[in-house]
Design a protein around this nucleic acid. Structure first.
Lengths: 213, 213
DNA sequence: CCACCCCGACTGAGCGCTCGCTCAGGTTTA
DNA sequence: TAAACCTGAGCGAGCGCTCAGTCGGGGTGG
């Protein structure tokens, strides 16, 4: 899992100042172990002992790098969003035609959603279990990703490859893209009998973009 | 909350055969109390003692009408879906123009989602906590609601008020309608600054139906 | 009419257990 | 050997669930 540092601006997870990248490495171990456990058993049914064991050390050590079980959940949520954001941005292209770039981005995004559907599900299910402040930061991170699509839409409007859209419409369409991507993850059981991922991307792109040209 | 009986076909929640509608009434009390608690604290952080107290009797009595805490969650999920289904079907119209009926249904459905957004969120968050068999029945119930939109779409195609659609396309659009409805519930924090419910219904209907005519 | 008993609904103290978290002490590193 | 790091037995709180017991109304025999 990608970025496991305490995010530049977010609730600090305070531990003694035994610095260096050991903290960073240990937290990555914690996140990697927890993601799998949370996905298969859920946050509440996973015990701190299991997390420690799966991470390769003892509970005592776990609590050297984290102040509470909820901290672990926060690290996990941030790591998932970071990874999604990174995988998406990494593969964005910036051509001369905004509409085409948007379509490509949708394809990339849906593919990422496909690969990370368990992680997305986890966030839907467990965000509520975060303390209020942490939850705010997690939701903000999600908004940052939505912003990627807002930007692409705005660019398409600016270069006339998309029809004019009011700002609220841009917001709406960006959220639609996000949610339709998630939908492939959390409704696979209903959709997979009818579509392959490629077909899903194709059809949904048509629906999403059809109205915008 | 509506139907709190063990559904005609579903995992039986077995209790001693002290029949009559007392079982029914008591279970309704349990569901009504639990919905509120689960929404505000989540399933895992709600204790059986709290449920009993909120329902107006003791834990002992609670376990006369239910075999486990998970049973309560199952009753709650079924009650929520039943209520959604009922509120939706109750207000469906069956005119001569399928497309118009569909548009009306979308409006009704989104309004129901608005009123029951906390309940929808609860189902997204806690369905995973159900035992496998119960979960299957809950998801099937959700599919039944999706079926309402499939039927409306098929009718629209049949009377030529919608363009021809392949069965998979009908499935996809029906799921899109469902999820876009839920989206108003679980992304209100992001959408409400830009839209009223009425505006949301208007815009989303345009996007959803625009491609179908 | 009373005295008796029965029965099903209801109660809540308490059982057995698990959990998140701590800390006294051991091990490794430099 | 001091500092940094790690260990895991143990603590106390709280959980889901049970079960011996209470209560009240209605049937029965005298």
């Amino acid at each position: 899992m990608g970025d496991t540092s305490a995010p530049s601006q977010g609730p600090k997870i305070h531990t003694e100042v035994k610095d260096s990248d050991l903290v960073f490495r240990r937290r990555r171990q914690i996140v990697d172990a927890s993601v799998q456990l949370f996905i298969s058993k859920g946050f509440h049914k996973t015990t701190t002992r299991e997390i420690a064991k799966a991470a390769g050390f003892s509970i005592g050590t776990l609590y050297e790098y984290v102040n509470s079980k909820e901290d672990v959940l926060y690290l996990v949520c941030q790591a998932i969003h970071s990874e999604m954001e990174q995988r998406l941005k990494q593969r964005l292209r910036h051509g001369i035609n905004g509409a085409r770039d948007l379509e490509a981005a949708i394809g990339v995004y849906f593919t990422v959603c496909d690969q990370m559907s368990d992680h997305i599900l986890l966030i839907y299910q467990e965000t509520k279990s975060l303390p209020a402040e942490s939850r705010r930061f997690v939701l903000e991170h999600e908004l940052r990703i939505t912003g990627v699509f807002k930007d692409l839409l705005a660019r398409g409007v600016a270069d006339f490859s998309l029809r004019p859209l009011h700002p609220p419409e841009i917001t709406l369409v960006a959220h639609n893209i996000m949610v339709v991507g998630h939908m492939w993850g959390f409704r696979r059981w209903a959709l997979a009998p009818s579509f392959s991922l490629e077909q899903y991307i194709q059809l949904q792109s048509d629906y999403l973009l059809g109205e915008l040209t």
